[in-house]
């Protein structure tokens, strides 16, 4: 019999098919760690038929905003986001990497105009999806460490 390591949740969000090793980065995107008010379950290095190994994150009593889902798409485009209501999958969302990442990354160039007080949102153009390469729309610099610059 297959052992169930992670129990089903009643309400909340299950982020499945995260590439193995990226669960902690997903937690960073969701801001988990500072002031959590519900249970968060993390499963790392779980066997997966499709992926070999994968990570899973379950957040109870919370549904993700579109911007949070876009952020996850940036680092884990293969992930699926399932919205759970009363133990059932109410919505299943496949992530799509947008052509532009607006307002979700900060430019690493300290002298970029997007880092000063101007009425704009940071904008990165996705130059390549695999491997992920993004370039600041304003200063044209490539962002090297994408995860470290998630807003």
């Amino acid at each position: 019999m297959r052992e169930l390591r992670v129990t089903p949740i009643k309400n909340g969000t299950v982020i499945d098919h995260i590439p193995a090793g990226l669960a902690l980065k997903v937690l960073k995107i969701l801001g988990i760690g500072d002031s959590v008010t519900s249970t968060v379950t993390v499963a790392m290095h779980v066997p997966s038929q499709a992926m070999g190994w994968k990570d899973i994150v379950k957040v109870e009593d919370r549904e993700l905003a579109a911007r949070e889902i876009d952020k996850i798409a940036l680092i884990a485009p293969s992930a699926t986001v399932n919205v759970i209501r009363n133990y059932n999958v109410a919505e299943k969302r496949h992530l799509t990497l947008p052509d532009r990442a607006i307002g979700i990354l900060r430019c690493a160039n300290p002298n970029c105009i997007s880092n000063v007080r101007e009425p704009i949102e940071s904008t990165f153009v996705v130059r390549s999806k695999n491997p992920l390469r993004v370039v600041c729309k304003y200063c044209d610099r490539e962002l090297e460490d994408i995860v470290a610059h998630i807003l």
Binding site: N109, N111, C112, I113, S114, V116, E118, I120, C136, K137, Y138, C139, D140, R141
Partner: peptide
């Protein structure tokens, strides 16, 4: 003096 000013 700042990069990206013209595009802004």
């Amino acid at each position: 003096p700042q990069e990206g000013a013209a595009r802004l």
